[in-house]
Nucleic acid binder design. Sequence first.
RNA 1: GCGCUUGUAGCUCAGUGGAUAGAGCGUUCCCCUCCGAAGGGAAAGGCCGUGCGUUCGAUUCGCACCAGGCGCACCA
Length: 548
Amino acid sequence: MLMLMREKIKQIIQTAMGPASAEFNFDLTYPDAKFGDYATNAALVWAKLSKQKPQDVAKNLIEKMDKAMFETVEIAGPGFINFRLKNNELLTQPSALNPQRSEKILLEYFQPNIAKPLHIGHLETAVIGDAIKRMLLFVGEKVESDTHMGDWGTQFGFLILAVKKFGKVNEKIYAQLNQEAEKDPSIHESAKQEFVKLEQGDQENRKIWQDLVEDSVKQFLQINQLMDILPFDHHWPESFYEDKMPGVLTELESKDILQTGERGARIVNLEQQKLGIAVIVKSDGGTTYLLRDLATFIFAQKEGFKKHLYVVDNRQSHHYKQLFAILHRMEKIEEGEGAHIDYGFVSFKGEALSTRKGNMILALDVIAQAEEKVAQVIAEKNPDLKDKQGVIKAVTKGALKYFILKHNRHSDIEFSWEEVLDFEGNSGPYLQYAYARLSSILKKSQITNPKFQINPKSQISNTERELLFKLSILSEIVDDTLADYLPNILANYLYNLAGLINKFYHESHILSEKDQTVKNFRLALIAKAKNTLGKGLELLGIQALEEM
RNA sequence: GCGCUUGUAGCUCAGUGGAUAGAGCGUUCCCCUCCGAAGGGAAAGGCCGUGCGUUCGAUUCGCACCAGGCGCACCA
């Protein structure tokens, strides 16, 4: 059974505390490097409960503790216990854990809408979802991804109406028609009618719809290549659930959950949970997104998915609360089996981006501008680079993905061209650059697989020691990242790691080092750093480059 | 009105019940006759929105208020 180092240390602490340890929680954190590798507040917590002095409790704990793994165990500050591991222990952290759970997880992300071009918001869901998928796979979970294309709903009434009126539809026509509808309610009404006809199987409308969908699917699947998104395991668009909705309605009826609301709409009353009214079927008989999401969840459950995760922006959190509340009432869901992985949407110059306002930042525009800037930088810094095109693409994707992933997904992002196109400092290319320099040294050393020889007599600098520890905790960081599905935890870690690597690179000379033992140790450190940084980048979906 | 969410350096953002609150950008400096300067180092810059409470300890938890954003029955 593989175990994270911090779990081992927690067990050691618990063992030292004896049966009393079951009664309370304590933390094990990463303190400032000068204090140690790990720190615990266990003595402080215990002292509080037992009304003893923290220092005494700590002293007692340390005495009883199995200290074999540690270089030092010290009391510090108000009663923290700081642990410093023996150097050899730093090489033993498993790169992956044994999977604890074996249920299938459905991870839904990337929900493009027909007749709307891909924009920055689509990049967010795709990039966040992809990173989460990569990490879940890394820890051994059975996760499958699904795109949920918006190919159904009243909007299709508008699209069909547009095709009938103008013979075709594009973004402009669609927007124009929507604007007209705001002034003229009869247009809105006819659009709704067209969708009802589509749902009832009208042949002409079906044909128009199919053509629209086929076109769009081709366009959307560019995302896999465009942004290096792992292939999707499923494409279950909204229309996929068309024939699964009646069954859900029947079940809602039989469980007496459904009520008739205003104008004959079929609703679920969630006022008690302070979630308002959920409309399941509209008064014109058309289905709602909510009904399709119910059908989606229930379908996935029948397919054996125990957990259903949705990577969708935070404006829809009310919707997902309603969804989970209804599923709960249907007794289909238990705590933790459905989760809305929400993210803040992008604003630009303080204004929310929207297609309607016309300030939307399109995916292809961002990519094009970033590629242009990357090409400039390469022309300036590394004009003789081989495979320029490949590197330009990889650096561009790295910059965009990292820009998205470094933010705590809960916060809204203020988009700034300046920041997105800045490849210095806390950026994707900074990480890729650190990696490329490591590769370069290893290549020049001509030692392909250096072995660690930690000679107790040879000097290990503070930076080297700190780096060695940092390299040992990748799995713990992934574990933290997945606890709340916050990819920025991994992104921040990698940024700090790259900073340490750069500092080490700056302070310690490798190729010119005379002492063979020291040189070997440093080379091994470089190799391990390269592997770890490379692995971390891969988990974010960012390509590591040998040269750039 | 109700609900959710955010408020941390000039700007954009991390972060945490505790040991000196961090980074990038911007500003002012320093470092390529040594492995890639897309790099490293230094300085300046903070009542962590306000008030009250819980706590040995609050920027972190709770409540109230102020300010922004989002959502709240037939859009998805």
